[in-house]
Design a binder for these strands. Structure first.
Lengths: 243, 243
DNA sequence: CTTGGGCAAAAGTATATACATGTATGTATG
DNA sequence: CATACATACATGTATATACTTTTGCCCAAG
């Protein structure tokens, strides 16, 4: 009989910790198979429901794999990918304690180019909304934001005052995003970008291309250009909010 | 008494669906407060444990917020952030059907600079591993990878042959990552980077700075420089794998 | 009016029990 | 030898019950 630590945390958390510790030390590493629920009940002296809860939560957290009728196994090492988080720039600037301001350069309805229509996966040509906004941090331009918006999902996009509401906030509020595609690259500033961001032509810019979906429909396409010298995308992330 | 649909799914899933549906239609939108567990027990005719499980899972999925002694509430709309995924470059290249090859330029033990020691959050000066590797896609250099590795977590790092095993694979295999910090920026190539990547000095590069933790200890610090013209980070992501 | 105690209500935890369902395996039968 | 069945064992689900912890609120005492 193993005695679990006498801490304040609930019992199922102690069981989870016990299991994680044994995974970590490789004690169950032989065939990566864990003791059965009933064996854990016997060795830990807790009820099966408690063991079951611990195992279920570790499974949903990705540590374990369970097969009914077979057993519980240590999950293969975490998928080799890491996530970074991209936040709303307006919120981010304010959070840093700086002043955010935006300037609307363009807000119009256009017929998409063939390439754009393709990106929207439109079967036929329909007009779309188009906006260009510059975001300032303490009066220094940091981001040039060009957006193309599917009007069937977000009507009235062209009626908004985006110097007050961030485009991002408006879109997030209007339609749920079910999928996002990002492409991040580094490009030299062209003449127009350079002018809007107040940097030299050819200066390094971080370029973020984003498409969002609502269901099967492409909702927005955004091209975000950051002045490379003034901005970097940062994030800190815990792959698994374990235990 | 509400009757839940007569499908094959388990009861707690039906309860989850019922709750999600009521959130979606805004039925409980007034003060965003849900019926208590006991009220749901009465109205749905299931046991409290079942209701509790449904509510607990919806809470951990981010849909609800529960306060002991107070009640259950609809969570505010999803945090306004999106995630992008950064994959192992070697695997990525192979997945694209291209040939991956790496060249080890440096693999040594060094004393960290003051700045580096600070990044590692070292209390005192200890030596660390240092590697510089160039990754090729079809013989075209795409990434310059400089890594600093905490020897207390990953001994023998300097004994590896990283032209065979990707550093990433080796590290992932040796120690679990509990937290990751990323900073992405766009910088012009310096002379050395330009030489290794075969690009012009001053050309745009995507620069990824990464720190990984194992528990409270900084495990690795990586500086990944991508030739901007040849590479972009891409990902597609579904924010909520709900219910 | 303010404070503090006590009560009710809500979620959180833990257990015992039962049955359902999926899987592997051994055994008897053709 | 092969198939079908029985069985044992694993996880999955559902309930009843009991107790704990936290919170909000009413009400009485000061």
């Amino acid at each position: 009989m193993i005695t679990l630590p006498d801490t304040a945390s609930p019992l199922y958390e102690k069981v989870k910790d016990y299991i994680l510790a044994n995974i970590g030390t490789g004690r169950w590493g032989k065939d990566r198979k864990l003791p059965s629920e009933n064996e854990l009940v016997a060795s830990l002296g807790v009820s099966r429901m408690t063991v079951h809860r611990a195992l279920r939560e570790l499974t949903s957290a990705g540590f374990l794999i369970r097969l009914q009728g077979v057993g519980t196994f240590i999950a293969p090492p975490r998928p080799q990918s890491t996530l970074i988080e991209i936040n709303n720039i307006a919120a981010e600037i304010v959070e840093r304690g700086n002043r955010h301001r935006s300037e609307v350069l363009v807000l119009e309805t256009i017929m998409p180019t063939k390439e754009l229509a393709l990106s929207f996966e439109f079967p036929k040509r329909v007009s779309i909304y188009h906006s260009v906004v510059v975001n300032f941090e303490n009066d220094l331009p940091v981001q040039l934001e060009e957006r193309f918006v599917n009007p069937s999902l977000i009507p009235d996009y062209d009626k908004q005052d985006f110097s007050k509401t961030a485009t991002y906030d408006y879109l997030m509020q209007k339609t749920p995003v079910t999928e996002v595609e990002h492409i991040i690259s580094a490009i030299p500033a062209d003449a127009e970008t350079a002018r809007h961001l107040g940097i030299d032509v050819g200066a390094c810019c971080l370029f973020l291309h984003r498409r969002t979906w609502t269901g099967a429909v492409v909702a927005t396409i955004s091209k975000l250009t950051y002045a490379g010298s003034r901005y970097s995308l940062g994030s800190r992330y815990s792959p698994s909010k374990s235990s």
